[in-house]
Design a protein around this nucleic acid. Structure first.
Lengths: 227, 227
DNA sequence: GCAAAAAGATATCAGCCGATACGTTTTTGA
DNA sequence: TCAAAAACGTATCGGCTGATATCTTTTTGC
């Protein structure tokens, strides 16, 4: 029978064979949706890349939209897995020492981890594109990604900016600063092809990534008020 | 006869009726491509919104891709028409007084004009989306838009940053700063739906636009080195 | 080992897409 | 006024898309 639920599984002990196929489909879908969007990606293309036949998509995810939503949930998990460490590190530092200087240091940790996802990671390229596209044109996955990724991430950054600045900034102004700061990183994710061409860079990894981050850190010093 | 050339016209004295239809198609295409991308937009949807029948698109533009390229050329013209004033103003100020302070003032003028296009202008919303999408996923119009819009715009901004900073910044570092600065504005164009939701704003016009610009100006002060 | 459930494959559907062959009406210059 | 060019309309084509009805094979629990 069909099991288009696609949820509440994991621990069920039986029929493990299909998990591999399901994972391959999800991986292919993440890549295809991230690169071409919901409408641009085709189910046949995803099925072929995953090495399955077409009805398998309906079988595992109920259809194209179900697959899209499953991608969003997968992205949330990967985002958490990747950002959990840096976020905990930033929070721990701030709990030990609530000074503006420590808040600035924590902010740099969080931003560096975020930038690493958006710029360096080849595997994160697919889901970064997925997320940013969904924020630009809200689709079925907007609420999931906004609520689970953007809102908490921006809240943390805005909070750190507020602490680093002391009392000199309103809550809303800190939020605007957070938006501007994060979206400045999109130069090397959303607009990467253009940025690389403009800088005559073959890629944005290694020393080049470090160079950008040095400048971003200077911007953070500026946002958080330091000469 | 078909006249799919779509070029070298303007001054020809005869058969003016079709110009209106051509303009309506271009307007509809700009809106549709900007909102949904090349693949997402359909020729039927464009034809219907323009109030013409389907073959009119081939008649005037040779096909879907020809229409897409015509949109890019139209965007270049609109961009120049909108930015020419502020750019001339910025250059005039710098020629009269080549000081870092004047460069910073000129930079603020250019960025404000750019931000106005990306945030405020409802009519510019369509072509802003078109441009940013093409930079993210290079398509047939990438070279036109990069060469005619992005490269000269970023060059000017990077140059102004260099002058404002004095000798303390390399040419390449100024280019990176320019990329980060411009892409920070994309929070309110590309990612507008998300940003508005995060700030609980119904729109980004009027006083809200001014508030963002005050913060952006502070960022410019930071980039160009001032406490 | 054997019924049952899961997993996978084949074939096909209706719908929309971009394109265009072809006919008709309108506008133009002389 | 009249032929030519331009502008517009109808009808339809082949191709691709997402979906699904139906059947076969594999894996599982007992």
């Amino acid at each position: 029978m069909s099991r288009s639920d696609g949820q509440a599984w994991e621990a069920a002990s039986g029929y493990r064979k299909g998990e591999a196929a399901r994972a391959r489909i999800l991986e292919a879908a993440l890549s295809a949706f991230g690169a071409n969007g919901f409408k641009g990606a085709t189910t046949r293309q995803i099925a072929e890349e995953a090495g399955v036949n077409l009805p398998a998509l309906k079988y595992y995810f109920g259809g194209k939209e179900g697959l899209y939503l499953a991608c969003a949930e997968e992205i949330v998990e990967r985002y958490r897995r990747q950002m959990l460490g840096p976020i905990l590190e930033a929070q721990a530092g701030l709990e030990a020492d609530g000074s503006p200087a420590q808040a600035r240091a924590s902010l740099k940790i969080v931003i560096a981890a975020l930038a690493d996802q958006m710029m360096e990671s080849r595997e994160a390229e697919a889901w970064t594109g997925f997320v940013l596209r969904e924020m630009a044109e809200p689709g079925p996955a907007f609420d999931i990604l906004y609520g689970q990724v953007w809102a908490p991430g921006l809240d943390l950054i805005a909070y750190l900016i507020g602490v680093a600045r002391g009392e000199g900034v309103s809550r809303k102004a800190a939020r605007i600063e957070a938006l501007l700061l994060v979206s400045s990183l999109s130069a090397f994710s959303t607009a990467r092809p253009m940025s690389l061409k403009y800088l005559a860079w073959p890629d944005a990894g290694g020393e080049r990534f470090a160079r950008v981050m040095r400048i971003v850190d200077e911007r953070i010093d500026g946002v958080t008020g330091r000469s």
